[in-house]
């Protein structure tokens, strides 16, 4: 199986997004409570076009990427599992024909909720108490950034497919 341009572009986006989230954005002064989940936006953009199974694979891979970019997550693999679930959930929002603008955003919202729920769940297991409102900022910024970024990513994806590069 030869790697396609689309696949390479996706992988590049995920790597850059993971590095941005972990390294560059905190240095530029973006507070952790308002950090948009750029990797998840990439996962959702693939999932809404390809469906749950593909979304799960991309989610799992992206989750591993996030996990392995230092600071390395603990326990290893938990983020990957949660992101896989989020990708699968986003994949169920696939519609074969419709180009409804709200559909990808709804998928992103659902995926973010899954990720944050997983994070809260593991925090509850690890620390015994959680503050659910703390992660609300992440939810809001991710969806807002997604409103801008998702259409761009989706049109880029469709353009590559149209030129038979995907």
């Amino acid at each position: 199986m030869r790697p396609t341009t689309l696949g390479l572009a996706r992988a590049a986006y995920l790597v850059v997004a993971a590095l941005l989230t972990a390294t560059l954005l905190p240095r530029l002064g973006v507070p952790g409570d308002w950090m948009p989940d750029l990797v998840l936006i990439g996962v959702v953009s693939t999932a809404v076009l390809r469906g749950p199974q593909h979304g799960a694979i991309v989610g799992l891979t992206a989750g591993w990427l996030v996990e392995l970019v230092p600071p390395v997550g603990s326990p290893l693999g938990l983020t990957a599992l949660v992101t896989m679930l989020a990708g699968a959930v986003a994949g169920t929002f696939r519609s074969p024909s419709s180009r409804a603008a709200l559909r990808p955003s709804a998928a992103l919202l659902a995926a973010t909720v899954v990720v944050e729920a997983g994070r809260l769940g593991s925090a509850a297991l690890a620390e015994g108490s959680v503050a659910p409102t703390e992660r609300l900022g992440v939810l809001v910024t991710t969806v807002v950034v997604g409103l801008v970024a998702l259409p761009a990513l989706l049109s880029a994806d469709r353009a590559l497919v149209r030129r038979r590069l995907g």
């Binding site: 799960a56 694979i57 799992l60 392995l68 230092p70 390395v72 290893l76 693999g77 896989m84």
Partner: peptide, 29 residues
């Protein structure tokens, strides 16, 4: 998907059990 999931679960279990494999993955990353 199944293969990736199996690897993930194996690594998760290894990390929770404190296996050196997980530490090696961390160091490599």
């Amino acid at each position: 998907l199944g293969g990736l999931l199996a690897v993930t679960l194996a690594l998760l279990a290894a990390d929770l059990a404190g296996s050196p494999v997980a530490a090696a993955v961390r160091g490599g990353a």
